[in-house]
Amino acid sequence: MTLLVTLFAAVISTILWYKNAPGDEYKIRTLCFIYWGASIMWFVDAVFEYAELKAAYFTPAPADMLNDLFLGLSAVVLGLIIWLVILLFKDPKGVFRKKRQAG
């Protein structure tokens, strides 16, 4: 479930990046890299887990699924926060620089 949620986030962020390309004023590519990096790693983790559990991997307990869903959503939010911090720090629109100059 965590992998699925992160993959959704990766695909959506990639579509958003492509829509704004080649400009990418809001550095959406950073968000793409975060989610794709995590998706690849969780995919590898899932392959190892599948090798161990076989078909049981696809029938998790509802409580585990819910926990994994919360984890996936929290990971997506964490990715957004990391992206936001990078965006504000790099300040591509120069909002903070303009304010400093005006002040």
């Binding site: 989610y35 690849i40 969780w42 990715g79």
Partner: peptide, 12 residues
């Protein structure tokens, strides 16, 4: 970026 991004979410 791929490695740091993935590492951050996996560490979480």
């Amino acid at each position: 970026n791929l490695l740091w991004g993935g590492t951050a979410l996996l560490a979480f």
